[in-house]
Design a protein around this nucleic acid. Structure first.
Lengths: 220, 220
DNA sequence: ACTTTGGATATTGTATACAAAAATAATCAG
DNA sequence: CTGATTATTTTTGTATACAATATCCAAAGT
């Protein structure tokens, strides 16, 4: 196990990312460098560097001389985000299926178990979402596509924010349970086409619900 | 027309990007902050910020306390890069085709014209490559998919580097001419399936040639 | 009241200075 | 001479200080 020495910038990246994902910082909200620096007990330099990295992740938007804001996606952009996920994740899943070992599948299954527990414990905001991402990603690692994998990870971060804020309240989480289990079963049986179709449906279904909620909020 | 005031960081980003794309900085080469700052007559701060942005673009790799290097892709990664492009660009093209206006198509055609001129003038290193990217992107703008569009733009930057360094020497450029014209024709005729297939073939064909060259260089 | 203009204030961008880590050179034991 | 170990140097990471830009607000003119 590598000890992974962390630079201040990295710590700040994680802190701000967490704030955005949990909704502590809302979409569109300005991110003042001085305030963040003060709060995190660092100078503005690591804050600026962190904001730049988060911009690359799509969580933050930077405008010269005007500062950064938490990215606010329009309904169309949310749609695009989820459709991109559907496209890329299906591709990854298709490539992963023939290579997934039983050990890896067992891990995915364990994540499902944990998600179910988190759901029972009504801990739907934090852990469930985290586990959800990890479950999805656990199916893709075997695809051996580092570039695509990283992209999908970013897209997941982004959509996660919307899942947490919006879908929790609706019945989205309840529906996800059986869908995940069916998906895992199809993957186990190496039924690539069926699995991909279900995955696509799973992602786009969530997208549709979230889009509704987003447009409702923007409109009223 | 917006005057677009440029910050030093942005200038440095463009300068370093250009150096990497043209091969002035070779893959794997370390990028010393002080040296770059000195050369570009700025302090290390904008250099660092530029390097971070370029890391997000995939052109640079950053390691804590060790510095940045120009990204060096393995043969597998080059393959993945081009396959990703094929996937995403086809998606964009398919969405763009029904929306492309004659005015936009005329612009694309003009780019082809310019490419042909650049080719005649044996200016294959700089302008041709630049025009090649612009031609591809000109077909996708109408898709109205800003997120995907930006991703593809990055991927293009990355693959461009390999195209410039390697394919120039081989016959890749010569082949591209007719392929581009055929593609544009199919797009004009709104033959989405055929156009996408040709595009895919166009990208993957280039990938195959480049992969050969990359493995050859790495091996010997 | 409404716009305009000038300046105070806040905020970002960049240079400089210093601290921390890594890479390199020098010393010394065997 | 070799290899380990400790200085020395180089390079990166971060804080502080200052410059440039944008934002806000009050006063003046219409």
């Amino acid at each position: 196990m590598v000890v992974e020495y962390k630079t201040r910038t990295q710590v700040v990246v994680e802190a701000i990312r967490e704030k955005i994902l949990t909704g502590a910082i809302k979409a569109g909200e300005p991110l003042r460098q001085a305030a963040l620096a003060d709060e995190l007990k660092v100078s503005r330099i690591p804050v600026r560097e962190a904001l730049l990295q988060l911009e690359a992740e799509g969580l933050v938007e930077f405008e010269a001389h005007k500062g950064a804001t938490a990215t606010k996606l329009s309904a169309e952009q949310v749609t695009e985000l989820f459709e991109l996920r559907a496209l890329l994740e299906c591709e990854l899943l298709r490539m992963a299926i023939p290579r997934l070992t039983e050990a890896e599948l067992a891990q995915s299954e364990q994540l499902l178990q944990q998600m179910s527990e988190a759901y029972q414990a009504a801990d739907t905001s934090g852990s469930w979402s985290e586990l959800n991402s990890r479950f999805h990603m656990s199916l893709y690692r075997a695809a051996n596509r580092p570039l695509t994998y990283e992209m999908v990870q970013n897209l997941n971060s982004n959509s996660d924010r919307y899942i947490r804020v919006h879908l929790m309240l609706a019945g989205g989480v309840k529906k996800a349970g059986p869908e995940h289990e069916n998906l895992l079963q199809l993957v186990r049986q190496k039924k690539a086409d069926a699995a991909c179709q279900l995955l696509k449906q799973h992602i786009l279904g969530a997208a549709a619900e979230i889009k509704l909620l987003v447009t409702k909020l923007d409109g009223g």
